[in-house]
Nucleic acid binder design. Structure first.
Lengths: 189, 189
DNA sequence: TTAACTCTTGAACACTTGTTCAACCTCGGC
DNA sequence: GCCGAGGTTGAACAAGTGTTCAAGAGTTAA
């Protein structure tokens, strides 16, 4: 076997799901297509993931982890910079790709259609909100925890709007103005 | 036939699609489920709509019409009030229902997964943007058309965020603050 | 070499899906 | 009555779906 290129197939199967999900939505994610995209036999998908829900669950877990990295503080930076970085990170080029945003959208839709996935999604969202509120608290020590949470919620509204809107193809300048808006909310006196 | 209740079945089929789409996403929209939900035989769906894409196309058309009503001016009101009404309308209780928002989300996802539906969606979006920019132009005659379009785009970012976020179950107060934010953008000097 | 183990394959199964179609209603005009 | 046209039905078909499983390949240890 070409052991160098051939990373472990279990994780390539998850990659394949991500790719298919972002390109064709959940209807495009079927076991055969996943196997084909991962370059693997049909049976292997069911070998690693007992059934389709388990497969989706595993994908959701992987996404949740990468989301939390968006609001994880860089210990080297000052609180002010940590917050500003986090706010800019959600609009970074590697995030604002069609591939990533499309994936986000299909995940939201999936969560809306299925209770179990909705619960997983809601928990990840809460953690993200807490992470953002904590960054605000550090950067503006004078604010009460409630005020931090409120601001985090307001920021998330705009961020979600940015993600969705840039997917719908609005010009970049409105995205840039929206980032400034999130900073105004965060740093307001 | 119970002619009183029994509105024409063609439109009940579209209702059924809307209901299924908002509840279970596009994977939940299959001809048999549509027929069942509409209280109609399987064959009738294909009688009115040649195939599944035609059915979805018809649904998209119906949604586009109702969207335009959101930014259609009330001729009785002053320009100021027309704009304010339109901005409040997108957060009205009948809009911020799970059923409507969920439908929106699944439509976006659908557009993202299918080129033809994406085109239909993009055109409807452009018309909405133009409608909003026109309302802003009437309310603030001093603004250039470009500035109106920019403000409309910024407002739509926040509105999309509100829709998405209220679907994810954030508290109502952040929605209320976001409405105020759209008004600030619109009426800024 | 043998044995035991995990990994990998694709044929086969039962079920769902979109679409077709012959048959059947229903009702207005003759 | 009869006709014809539009509306309505559900069985039937082909293709696609998730899942199972017997068989094989590859690797390690004895």
């Amino acid at each position: 076997m070409n052991a160098g290129e051939q990373v472990d197939r279990q994780s390539r199967i998850l990659d394949a799901v991500l790719e298919l999900l972002s390109r064709h939505g959940i209807s495009g994610v079927n076991m055969r297509a996943v196997a084909r995209e991962a370059g693997v036999a049909l049976g292997l998908v069911n070998y690693y993931y007992a059934d389709k829900p388990s497969l989706i669950r595993a994908v959701l877990g992987r996404i949740g982890e990468s989301d939390m990295r968006l609001v994880s503080p860089d210990p080297e930076a000052l609180p002010d910079e940590q917050l500003r970085d986090a706010l800019r990170r959600v609009a970074a080029p590697e995030i604002l790709t069609t591939q990533y945003l499309s994936l986000r959208l299909h995940l939201w839709a999936l969560a809306q259609a299925d209770e179990e996935f909705a619960a997983i999604n809601a928990e990840a969202f809460d953690q993200y909100l807490d992470g953002l509120a904590a960054l605000i608290g550090n950067a503006k020590p004078g604010l009460s925890p409630e005020e931090c949470k409120d601001r985090a919620a307001d920021i998330v509204v705009v961020q979600n709007g940015m993600w969705l809107t840039s997917l719908l193809g609005i010009d970049k300048s409105s995205i840039e103005r929206s980032i400034v808006r999130t900073e105004e909310i965060a740093f307001a006196d």
